[in-house]
Computed example of a mutant assay.
Amino acid sequence: MKITLTLNGKKTEAEIRPDMLLIDFVRQQGCSSVKRGCETANCGLCTVFMDDQPVLSCSVLAARADGHRIDTLEGLQEEAEEFGAFIAGQGAEQCGFCNPGMIMNAIALFREIPEPSVEEIQEYLAGNLCRCSGYEGQLRGILDFIEYRKNGGAR
């Protein structure tokens, strides 16, 4: 079956199998930030935006993306760069495997709630599996980033 979608701002047409998952499709298109983790929609490593909403690409058929806009971390580099560098500078990333999914969900959080509470941050992080840190580093990093932005980018 043929699908047409916008992937990271570029119109993309492809012939796919009807049972192909969105994670496999975007990785096939070169989007290596989208990672395969649990394959049960529990870890957040495969998070992409479909029409600006975070979805777990391991649980969405590629055919459902037909006619939609899909963004991966590769397409959101400008938006993600400052936050990703800030988190890395804070040492909140440890091994880094969960970072792309965590950054995608942080972007969704900041878009929806520019100054989130601790509880709101924890709610957004709950869908991301991090076996290294127990989320304390990411939580601290997000809170520090919010403070950094409030101060106009001054540390």
Score class of each variant (00 low, 15 high):
Thr4Asp: 06
Ile16Arg: 12
Leu21Ala: 08
Thr6Met: 05
Ile16Phe: 09
Phe49Val: 01
Glu93Ile: 15
Ala92Ile: 09
Ile23Ala: 04
Glu79Tyr: 00
Leu56Ser: 11
Leu76Ile: 03
Thr12Gln: 11
Gly84Leu: 04
Thr12Gly: 11
Glu78His: 09
Ala65Gly: 04
Asn42Lys: 15
Asp52Gly: 06
Gly89Lys: 10
Ala41Glu: 06
Thr40Leu: 11
Ser57Leu: 06
Gln28Pro: 01
Gln53Lys: 07
Arg69His: 02
Pro54Cys: 04
Arg64Gln: 08
Ser59Lys: 08
Phe25Pro: 01
Thr6Glu: 06
Ser33Tyr: 02
Arg69Leu: 05
Gly89Phe: 12
Val48Thr: 07
Cys38Ala: 02
Thr72Asn: 06
Thr12Ser: 09
Asn42His: 13
Ala88Gly: 08
Cys43Asp: 08
Ile16His: 11
Ala62Gln: 00
Glu74Pro: 12
Thr47Arg: 04
Leu45Glu: 05
Leu73Ser: 10
Met20His: 13
Gly75Ala: 11
His68Pro: 05
Ser32Asn: 06
Cys38Arg: 06
Glu78Ala: 10
Thr6Gln: 01
Ile3Ala: 13
Gly84Ile: 05
Ala41Val: 07
Ala62Tyr: 00
Pro54Val: 07
Glu93Asn: 14
Phe86Cys: 15
Glu39Gly: 09
Glu15Phe: 12
Glu15Met: 14
Val26Asp: 02
Ala41Ser: 06
Asp52Thr: 00
Phe83Tyr: 13
Asp51Pro: 03
Val26Cys: 05
Gln90Val: 11
Val34Gly: 02
Ile87Leu: 15
Val26Pro: 05
Gly37Arg: 05
